[in-house]
Design a binder for these strands. Structure first.
Length: 217
DNA sequence: TGAATGATTTACT
DNA sequence: GTAAATCATTCAA
């Protein structure tokens, strides 16, 4: 048991499944300010979520579940809400998502950045950085490394003890286009990225309406 | 079976 | 600003 308690007024207990069983845009927006908690044999880490994106397959061209594509990788998104969808990209980075809404509808929220709250030394050790470095958790791949989230965690129940969201303070939420989905045509223009614009731990600053023309189609 | 590629990060010019 | 790193996953054959 950890001797110190986090500097939040709320207990570090998992949010109920009902939190995830709502429209994906609602869940994405309400993620901002919540606390992401991770427990492993190495110890506990926690961070305040400051950036998240909604992926609304099967219509959303940017989503892995676009067109209802149901493969071993995307299978968990077709299951019940409140579970983890973790995937691996570019041969080196993991990405952590929350499965939302309802069984059969493959919607998910990508957690893109958190502010370190608890276990910063362990995060620094995992990242190979000093604990004060702002690059500790300011990106979807970075936070997965700091929180030791891997493909092993895909399908994990977010109402369990080892990986979950807990309540946090209410904050103002800004919106922008999503990052890295220019290939998605008109879907890339959707303002489905949500963030606390005052945070210094965003993967990129919030700038609405400034996006290069999509390459190709 | 093999080829293409990616919801990124890092280092370097 | 650009490029390299590096492999699970998908799809075509």
């Amino acid at each position: 048991m950890q001797a110190t308690r986090p500097a939040t007024s709320s207990p570090l207990t998992p949010l109920p499944r009902a939190f995830y069983a709502r429209p994906v845009l609602t869940v994405a927006r309400e993620c901002i300010g919540k606390i992401l908690v991770r427990r492993t044999a190495e110890g506990a880490v926690a961070g305040r979520i400051v950036e998240a994106e909604a992926y609304r397959g099967p219509q959303d061209r940017a989503a892995h579940s676009f067109g209802g594509r149901r493969t071993p990788r995307t299978e968990v998104m077709f299951g019940p809400p409140g579970h983890a969808y973790v995937f691996f990209v570019y041969g080196m980075h993991h990405q952590f998502n929350l499965v939302t809404t309802r069984r059969g509808l493959p919607h998910a929220v990508l957690i893109r950045a958190v502010e370190p709250l608890l276990g910063v030394d362990l995060m620094g050790k995992r990242r190979g950085l000093c604990p004060e470095d702002p690059r500790l958790t300011s990106g979807p791949g970075r936070l997965c490394q700091a929180f030791a989230i891997t493909l092993m965690d895909t399908g994990a129940d977010l109402c369990g003890r080892d990986l979950f969201l807990a309540a946090g303070k209410r904050v103002r939420v800004a919106r922008s286009t999503r990052i890295g989905v220019d290939y998605a045509g008109a879907w890339a223009d959707k303002l489905w990225r949500f963030a606390d614009p005052t945070s210094r731990h965003l993967s990129r600053p919030i700038r609405v309406g400034i996006r290069r023309e999509a390459k190709g189609r």
